[in-house]
Design a protein around this nucleic acid. Sequence first.
DNA 1: ACCTGAACACCGTTCAAGT
DNA 2: ACCTGAACACCGTTCAAGT
Lengths: 230, 230
Amino acid sequence: MALSRDEVLAGALTLLDKVGLDALTMRRLAQALGVQAGAIYWHFKNKQELVDAMADELIAGIASSPLTGSWEEQLGEIGRRMAAGLMRRRDGARLASQALKPGPNTLANVETMLRVIAASGQPQERVLWTASVLGYYILGFVTDVQAQAEAVRHRGLDRLVREFFETELDAEAYPEMSKIKPRQVTEMMKVKHAQARFEFGLGIILRGLTNGAAAAAPTEARARRTHRRR
Amino acid sequence: MALSRDEVLAGALTLLDKVGLDALTMRRLAQALGVQAGAIYWHFKNKQELVDAMADELIAGIASSPLTGSWEEQLGEIGRRMAAGLMRRRDGARLASQALKPGPNTLANVETMLRVIAASGQPQERVLWTASVLGYYILGFVTDVQAQAEAVRHRGLDRLVREFFETELDAEAYPEMSKIKPRQVTEMMKVKHAQARFEFGLGIILRGLTNGAAAAAPTEARARRTHRRR
DNA sequence: ACCTGAACACCGTTCAAGT
DNA sequence: ACCTGAACACCGTTCAAGT
C-alpha cells in the first residue's frame, strides 16, 4: 500500500523521538517505514527537504491561537510557544538549526513576531533585529537544555555530575566556577528549573527592549532613559 | 619528518578556512597534511577531540588583556571579543556549537564572564543564567552572520536576494515581511551592518540586566524598577 | 614514536528496472 | 505512481604491520 509524504514525515518525527537526530538516517527511516532507502526520495528531493519539513512541523499551530495583553506580554507568549514547540521533539532545537528553507508554519510565526514587535513603535529595520535577538535566545536555550538531556541519556546523571567536578574544577584557578555546588548541577537538570531559567532570560530581553531600545552604543546604556520612544 | 599535534590542529584550522566545516573531513585533512587518514588518530583520539581543540583555539587569548570600566562595559567587551573570536574562522560559530568538552581557553573565558557578572551583585545562581543568555545571543548571532556568508559563497548575492523575494514574499499574507525591501536585504550582508546589529542586541541584553534583573515573571516586567539590586 | 595500508561498518544519493 | 536492487562516492574509525 502506497506511502504518502505525510506518513514519511510523521515516521521521521517518531523516529527522531526514538533514536535522536544523529541516528536519524535515511536508511533507518526507510527501515522504520518498511521500505527501501531510495523510496523516500520519491516523496522528498533529499534529506535537507525532509529536515526542513520536520523543523516546520515542530512549530505548527503556535501562531494560530490569539495573543492578548501588551506587546511585551504578547512577545513573551510567542517566545514561550516557540520554545515549547522546539521542546516537543527530541533534539528539536538542533533540528531547527539545521533547517535552511522556512516552511509555512515558520513563516506564519515570524510574521506574527514582526507584527507584535512593530506594534511597539520600533523603526522597521530594528523590528527584524529585535526578532533575531529573541530567536537566538530561544534556540540557544532549548539547544542547551536538550543537549543536557542527551548527555544524561548517554552518560547518566550521576556520572555526568561526577565528571563535571573532576575535570573542570580541580584547579583553584577558577574561583567563580568553583562556587558551583554538586546539588546545583543536579538541580539544573530538572524541568522546573529550565522553566524558571527560560523566564529569567526572556525577562532580560523584554526589559532591555522596553527601556530605550534605540540606544546607539551599549557603553552609554547605563542611564535608563525613557525618551527616544515613539 | 614527524607531525606534531599542533601542526595537525593548525592544519585543520587552515583547511576549515579553505573548505568550510561540512567539507572538513579526516581524509581531506590527512591529504592536506601529506599523510594517511589513520595518522591523525595518533595525535587525536577521534574527530570530536579535534573539533574540541579547534573550537578552543578560536577564542584563545581573548580573556588575557585587561578589562576596564563598569561591569556592564566589561561584560559588553567580553561579548565583543567572543564574537570576534568566533568570526576569526569560517564557520567558527557552528564549529563552537559542535564542541563538547571545553578547553583551557573556553574555561578561562567563562571564568572571566562569571567574575564580571558576579561583580554586578547578582545572586550566584543567576550569574550562571546571565552568562548563558549572553552566550546564546553571541553564538546565535555569529552563526547567523556566517550562515549568510556561506549562502552568498554558494549561491551568489544577487541570486540569494532574488530567491528571497520570490519564495517568501509573493503572498500578501505576510504584510510585515513584505515591508522588507531588496536593498535592505543587500545591506544586511555587509560587515558594517553586522557590527551595528551586534551592538543593538548586546545593548538590549545589558540594559535588561541593569534594570532589575531579579524580576520573577516577565509579565510584570513592564514597570521599570530599580529596587531589588544589592 | 609515528605512520601506512587496508579493511569495517556505515552514510546520502542516483537510477535503471520492475509493478 | 510508487518502489526495489544495486551501485557510486563518500564518511569516521580501527589495527596489524611497517620504520
